[in-house]
Amino acid sequence: MSDLSLRSAFAVLLKRDLVLAYRRRAEIANPLLFFILITALFPLGLGSNKPMLQAVGPGVIWVAALLAALLSLDGMFRSDFEDGSLEQLMLSSHPVSLLVVAKISAHWLVTGLPLVVVAPLLGVLLSLPGDAIAVLVLTLLLGTPILSLIGAVGVALTVGLRRGGIILSLLVLPLYVPVLIFASDAVSTAAAGIPITAQLYIIGAMLVLALSLAPLATAASLRVSLS
């Protein structure tokens, strides 16, 4: 019974955030647009120097993804904090750390998944070879959930501050760096035709670690921010 109601609470909350995102889709599109624009400007700025584009491509796309994720983070708990929904969430009869997973999942579906979807196009724009584009999509698929999970902890800690934006970046960016290093390295290595299992395993391990720890840390941070 309680298992069932927890599942329904999870589903209701996930659906709520998706519906809310849909009703304010203009705001949600911002990070995606930012991601596309930054990446699209590089070939214009660097000229049609194909080897150079290929060399910087993986790094550029991943840096842009990181910044787009950072841009989207603040929205995760801000409006809930301001209208009091966050208090209600903390007073739920279900474990907060699991409800937080619903919110993070919604955030990833709305801001992370679109990045994965448009990435192949941007790979073509930066003239990455086909294999590297496939790996790029794979690393984004594994990596963007990590960005949402780690970001959730940072947002939860700073949501009570009036100007938390800068602190949030300082807090979260260092934790994003390992993902950036391994992911862009995987893509460049794949472009050179070398196997990349090691990098993928490491990113996978980071995802598992983030998935198991971030929800607990987020719930605890929210409790601190609200009290």
């Binding site: 301001e82 209208d83 009091g84 208090e87 007073l91």
Partner: peptide
């Protein structure tokens, strides 16, 4: 919390719903 219902200063309702 399953026994508690709180209505605070902030309504806790979602304006877009």
């Amino acid at each position: 919390h399953e026994h508690v219902s709180y209505v605070g200063h902030r309504d806790g309702v979602k304006q877009d719903l």
